[in-house]
């Protein structure tokens, strides 16, 4: 990937992170940690990889994304706003009465392909979309984003079996492996490791990457395109709270909003990084 493009993705991802902080701060609730850890991924997919058009959010041939880890909705909303599905200003209405930015994704919101939030369910829905495309030879791709804690849900493994059984090579799933869940480290709460070997054993093509390296991301998604007869799982090692110093790798920031002071610090940090990128 050329340097200019990487720079643009970094700039866009920083803007998405600002949107996340704006939204969660205004809502006084939400999940900043897991939103920040997948902000780079969603930015990459929606601005660079996926065939989507904000003017035609229900285009039958669009690529689909199911945010199976639905609590990272602020990241998805900020990314969709950046992509032009609705104004970034709307992030301030997150979780408020009358807002279309619900606490967890709602299919009625422009750009949202599936309502999610109850963990483990989105991956099954993504399988259904991918199977449907296969049956009628539709060209679109389906992406699903899961949490590493989320894969403790049994339904995920039912879906893992299904995707391999029906050879859904138009499905690419990603595990956002930030290593933390509500009660602590995933390795201590209920270890899902080794994630890559488990999915491999279930019949998936598995690629390990760094969640904050756009070159690795590009390589992985290019590789996924070449895989036939198998679904692809990208296990991305990420930093929970990425981009806000005091949130990084801290389990406390799974589901808590920053207060005014913390908000100022977060915005200052991201804006400083943004200025550096734009210089």
């Amino acid at each position: 990937m050329d340097e200019k493009l990487v720079r643009q993705l970094q700039i866009d991802a920083a803007k998405v992170r600002l949107g996340i902080i704006e939204g969660v701060h205004a809502a006084k609730a939400g999940h900043p940690g897991g939103s920040l850890s997948c902000a780079d991924l969603l930015t990459y997919l929606y601005t660079h990889r996926m065939n989507v058009d904000p003017k035609k959010p229900k285009d039958p041939n669009r690529d689909r994304l199911v945010l199976s880890k639905g609590h990272s909705a602020p990241a998805l909303y900020a990314t969709l706003a950046l992509r032009g599905f609705f104004p970034m200003e709307e992030m301030k209405t997150l979780r408020k009465i009358g807002s279309r930015l619900q606490g967890h994704p709602d299919i009625k919101t422009p750009g949202i392909d599936m309502s999610t939030g109850s963990l483990g369910q989105g991956i099954s829905v993504a399988c259904g979309m991918a199977l449907s495309a296969k049956i009628t030879c539709d060209p679109y791709k389906v992406f699903a984003v899961l949490g590493d804690g989320e894969i403790e849900e049994g339904e995920v493994w039912e879906a893992a079996m299904f995707a391999a059984h029906y050879k859904l090579d138009n499905l690419v799933a990603v595990v956002d492996n930030n290593g933390l869940q509500i009660d602590g480290k995933v390795s201590e709460v209920m270890s899902p490791y080794p994630i890559d070997e488990k999915f491999e054993a279930f019949g998936w093509h598995v690629i390990n990457i760094n969640a904050h390296d756009f070159n690795e991301m590009e390589k992985a998604f290019n590789e996924a395109e070449t895989v036939m007869q198998k679904p692809t799982m990208i296990v991305m090692r990420s930093t929970k709270g990425k981009g806000v110093s005091y949130m990084e790798n801290s389990v406390d920031w799974h589901g808590k909003a920053p207060n005014d002071e913390e908000y100022e610090i977060a915005v200052k940090e991201i804006k400083a990084y943004l200025a550096e990128l734009e210089a």
Partner: peptide
């Protein structure tokens, strides 16, 4: 869930 995904594509 698979049924939901299929239905979302219009079938």
């Amino acid at each position: 869930g698979v049924a939901a995904g299929i239905a979302s594509t219009g079938k």
